[in-house]
Amino acid sequence: MEGLQLQSQTDKKGKLYVIGIGPGSVEQLTIASRDAILNSDYIIGNGTYLDQVKELLNDQKIIRSHMGKEVDRAKKAVELAEDNVVSMVSGGDANVYGMAGLVLEVAEHHELDVDIEVLPGVTAITAGASVLGAPIVNDFAVISLSDLLTPWERIEKRLMAASEADFIISLYNPKSRQRNSNFRRAIEIIQKTRDGSSPVGLVKNALRGDSQEMKVTTLDKVLDYDDWVDMRTMILITTPESRIWGGNGMEKIITPRGYQRKYDY
């Protein structure tokens, strides 16, 4: 019986990848992610993300979807992975507000018996931080302002706790047409406990070529950019220990790691 079971497992050809494709260009993909996409039978994803890796889409069968159809995508990926190599693509990192959790939940529910591999990608906080300089080299918290799946009351508690604990705070999904006040509400919560001089960086379309934009300001002035912020914007709110270096549109944010307290340089 053991031999038969081993043979059955060996004969299975299904495989499911959940791939974080990073900021939005093939150059920012890991080599492992690129290879998985090139060697898959099916590629499934939001049309926006599929377009970002279109140069890797050749002979694979492509299943395009759109926002709000995440459950349908996950179910289709699990179904196809029984007998095919399937890649589910997710923007940024698949674990950071991405598709990894949902895909694994659906796979668990349907008792999928094939290998599942989650491949990491560059997420918005690290992409945006690289544009801004060195703002997150100390402890930080990442908080999504989308209350579609998380109650706003819980988001408020997380914002207050992170601010009081002096974490550098990254805000994801700050604003959409339906949620155009959440960014302002979040900043007002943080302003209650954090010094207004704290540097703040805003990056739109991080590492997406000519569409990338950035702003550097302070906590007491960041709401001047309320109309500029949208769903493609990642916000980094640092602490008074951080500082802004440079000018003329070339500003960088530096957050000391702590070396200055031990060494002379």
Rank of each mutant, 00 (worst) to 15 (best):
E108M: 12
Q178T: 13
I189F: 04
E108K: 11
D230V: 02
L148I: 09
V122H: 09
D147F: 03
L207C: 11
D220M: 03
I244K: 05
T217S: 07
A107P: 07
A162V: 01
V122W: 03
A206Q: 10
I116T: 06
A124E: 05
T217F: 06
M231S: 13
Y225R: 04
V203N: 10
S211G: 08
T233M: 05
Q191I: 05
I116Q: 06
D166F: 10
N173K: 11
V229T: 09
K215E: 15
A129Y: 09
D139Y: 05
I187Y: 01
P199F: 04
N173L: 12
T193F: 13
E153Q: 11
R154P: 00
P151V: 09
I136H: 13
I187G: 08
V142F: 02
I169Y: 00
I189D: 00
I169W: 01
A107E: 15
L159M: 06
R208S: 03
I168L: 12
A186G: 09
L223E: 04
E108F: 12
A161L: 10
N182D: 06
G121V: 01
S197L: 08
D226T: 09
V229D: 13
I169M: 08
N138D: 14
I187R: 03
R177A: 12
A162Q: 00
A162Y: 03
G246V: 15
G246P: 12
L171K: 00
V229H: 07
N182E: 12
K204L: 10
V216F: 13
V118Q: 14
I155M: 15
E108H: 15
L219W: 02
A134K: 12
I190F: 02
V200A: 05
S211I: 09
S146V: 09
Q191P: 08
A141Q: 15
A206D: 04
S211Y: 05
R154Q: 14
L171C: 00
D220A: 03
A165N: 11
D166Q: 11
I125S: 07
V118Y: 02
L148M: 10
H109S: 07
P240N: 01
K221P: 02
D227N: 13
W228T: 09
M231E: 11
N138M: 08
D195K: 01
P135W: 00
L159W: 02
Q191R: 14
K204V: 00
L112W: 04
I125E: 06
L149Q: 03
I125C: 04
G246H: 10
I235F: 00
E241I: 08
S146R: 04
S144L: 04
R232C: 06
I155S: 06
F167P: 11
D139C: 10
D230G: 10
S144C: 07
D113Q: 07
A107G: 14
